[in-house]
């Protein structure tokens, strides 16, 4: 009896593909303990008026979620998050694709240039923020020094909320476009040369070849960079903190930095957790769309 069970078990291990799922165990355990559990406890906090540090608090039902709907700063942060995510995607796609086209084929300065473009992508957001602060700052700012040469009087670049959001988005795009560039270089390298040769034999112009051959074949690269940039936008924290600390007012906060500020500085842990859950739901929606894409891709390979 026991033997038969053992035998069945070893058959299961040996041949049943379901057994392979056991390989995910270490990852799943870590994931449950350090991600799922904290999220559930965050959900619990979101129904309280906890200040984030006291040993006592009371439950306030869905009050925090109601507040969230009418809170301007939450919606500003949500909009900013989209600007940071989608705006960076747009700028980086143009910039990254251009750089990739320039740096895909071999020439003398290719290696050096690639490295220089990629280096900022490896630097912490906080540091990037501090460095760029010295460029866009009013007093002795490097950018103002330059426009001064053309006789323009200095500008206090980050003083207006919307302009500051755009500048942060641009800095994020420029600093991290190395990542997009690498993805596109990889994409271009995987476009078989024969397509281009066939096109040039057919007499297609450079632009036509680019429009009808390169772009469609680069679609997977576009999608990957979209995914990575949206994640980057959602996680945007260090850059905002270093450049403006979310100000003026709440004008430049991303969801991430707003959650942090609400939790610790404003001492509204319950409300902050509600924003966290709200962004989590939003993220899940994005991730469902992403899963659709993965399934679609899967069918392309296996179907």
């Amino acid at each position: 009896m026991v033997e038969a069970k053992l035998k069945r078990f070893s058959r299961f291990l040996y041949a049943d593909p379901r057994a392979l799922t056991l390989l995910t165990l270490p990852a799943v355990v870590l994931f449950s303990v350090f991600v799922v559990f904290p999220i559930i406890s965050g959900l619990n906090i979101s129904f309280t008026n906890w200040n984030g540090y006291s040993q006592s608090y009371s439950y306030v039902g869905i009050q925090n979620y109601k507040d969230l709907l009418f809170n301007d700063s939450v919606w500003t942060a949500f909009r900013n998050t989209l600007v940071y995510g989608l705006g960076s995607t747009a700028v980086q796609t143009v910039l990254g694709l251009g750089l990739a086209m320039l740096l895909v084929d071999k020439f003398f300065l290719r290696g050096v240039t690639r490295t220089i473009v990629y280096i900022p992508a490896m630097v912490a957001q906080l540091v990037i923020g501090y460095i760029w602060y010295f460029i866009v700052t009013y007093e002795r700012g490097a950018l103002n020094d330059i426009i001064n040469l053309f006789g323009v009087s200095p500008i206090d670049w980050m003083s207006k909320g919307n302009r500051a959001v755009l500048i942060i988005m641009l800095i994020n795009s420029i600093a991290y476009c190395g990542k997009t560039m690498i993805i596109f270089i990889a994409g271009l390298e995987s476009v078989p040369n024969m397509y281009h040769e066939a096109a040039s034999i057919d007499g297609a112009s450079g632009w036509q070849a680019f429009r009808h051959i390169t772009i469609p074949l680069l679609l997977p690269a576009f999608t990957t960079s979209l995914v990575l940039n949206i994640i980057g936008g959602l996680k945007m924290f260090g850059l905002v903190i270093a450049m403006t600390d979310g100000g003026p007012g709440y004008a430049t906060h991303s969801l991430s930095s707003l959650i942090n500020t609400m939790y610790f500085a404003n001492q509204r842990a319950g409300f902050s957790s509600a924003i966290g859950i709200f962004s989590f739901i939003f993220i899940m929606l994005v991730s469902i769309l992403l899963r659709r894409y993965l399934e679609y891709k899967d069918q392309q390979y296996n179907g």
């Binding site: 991600v35 904290p38 999220i39 965050g42 949206i230 994640i231 959602l234 996680k235 924290f237 969801l255 991430s256 959650i259 942090n260 939790y263 902050s272 957790s273 924003i275 966290g276 962004s279 989590f280 993220i283 994005v286 991730s287």
Partner: peptide, 8 residues
């Protein structure tokens, strides 16, 4: 995509 700060 979960910002780790939200569950810190």
């Amino acid at each position: 995509m979960v910002p780790p700060l939200s569950v810190l």
